[in-house]
Amino acid sequence: MRITAFRALLADEFGAPLAETIAHDHVFGALGGRTVEQALDAGIPAKEIWRVVCEVFEVPPERR
């Protein structure tokens, strides 16, 4: 998954303002205590990050 596609999914699911907050401020234990931005910078694949975000925020399976 490309990072641009990941960002579009995040914005579509949560709305642009909340997506930005999630990406910059929410720390995910499953990402090694990183935010989305830190995980991307660390080279974690966007698809893996998306799975973690979906699990944590209980995104329904049909929108994952």
Score class of each variant (00 low, 15 high):
M1K: 08
R2P: 10
I3H: 08
T4L: 15
T4R: 14
T4D: 15
T4V: 15
A5V: 12
A5I: 11
A5T: 12
F6W: 11
R7L: 15
A8C: 06
L9V: 06
L10E: 04
L10F: 04
L10V: 04
D12V: 07
E13A: 09
E13N: 05
F14L: 09
F14M: 03
F14W: 09
F14P: 02
F14C: 04
F14H: 07
G15Y: 08
G15Q: 07
G15T: 08
A16D: 11
A16W: 05
P17C: 10
P17N: 07
L18M: 11
L18I: 11
L18C: 02
L18S: 03
A19F: 07
A19N: 06
A19V: 06
E20S: 12
E20G: 06
E20D: 13
E20R: 13
T21I: 11
T21P: 00
I22F: 05
A23F: 09
A23N: 07
A23T: 05
H24L: 13
H24T: 10
D25P: 00
D25G: 00
D25C: 04
H26G: 00
V27W: 07
V27R: 12
F28Q: 01
F28A: 03
G29I: 01
A30Q: 10
L31P: 01
L31K: 03
L31R: 03
G32R: 05
G33F: 08
G33E: 05
R34G: 03
R34S: 09
T35S: 07
T35M: 05
V36R: 01
V36I: 15
V36W: 01
V36L: 02
E37C: 05
E37T: 09
Q38H: 05
Q38F: 03
Q38I: 03
Q38L: 03
Q38C: 04
L40Y: 06
L40H: 06
L40V: 14
L40M: 08
D41R: 15
A42V: 05
G43Y: 10
G43L: 11
G43F: 08
I44T: 11
I44W: 02
I44V: 14
I44A: 02
A46N: 07
A46L: 09
A46S: 14
K47G: 08
E48P: 00
E48F: 13
E48V: 14
I49G: 00
I49N: 01
I49D: 01
I49V: 14
W50Y: 12
W50F: 13
W50C: 07
V52I: 15
V53K: 04
C54W: 00
C54M: 03
E55P: 00
V56R: 00
V56T: 04
V56D: 00
V56K: 01
V56Q: 00
V56N: 00
F57D: 02
F57L: 14
E58N: 09
V59D: 05
V59P: 02
P60D: 14
E62N: 10
E62Y: 13
R63I: 02
R63Q: 13
R63Y: 15
R64I: 06
R64M: 10
